[in-house]
């Protein structure tokens, strides 16, 4: 039996969602935002050239941050409301 201890939900928006080809992704064993960026750049090389912020449970974070289990992690390209 496989044990998965750390699971997160990724939500993508704007042009990031277009590059991912999805609004949502479920990922296992991604403990920090740095690991997440590494994983995304490897899976979706185009993202490396794009600017995007990361929000953990709806709060924007900067630098390398731990990602709690069951967190909702959002990939946010530059805002353009208004």
């Amino acid at each position: 039996m496989e044990m998965v201890t750390h699971r997160i939900k990724i939500r993508a928006f704007g042009m990031i969602a277009e590059k991912l080809g999805a609004d949502c992704l479920d990922l296992d064993s991604i403990p920090t935002t740095e690991v997440l960026r590494g994983y995304l750049y490897q899976q979706f090389p185009e993202l490396e050239k794009m600017k995007f912020g990361i929000a953990i449970n709806k709060k924007l974070v900067s630098g390398n941050q731990p990602i709690p289990n069951e967190a909702e992690v959002a990939l946010l390209p530059p805002f353009s409301g208004g």
């Binding site: 704007g14 959002a74 946010l76 530059p78 805002f79 353009s80 409301g81 208004g82």
Partner: peptide
């Protein structure tokens, strides 16, 4: 500056361009 909202411009030849504030 702070609200996570995105605008995609629709151009008349059916091209799409993401805005950036």
């Amino acid at each position: 500056k702070e609200l996570p909202i995105w605008g995609k411009e629709l151009v008349d030849n059916e091209k799409e361009v993401w805005k950036e504030n």
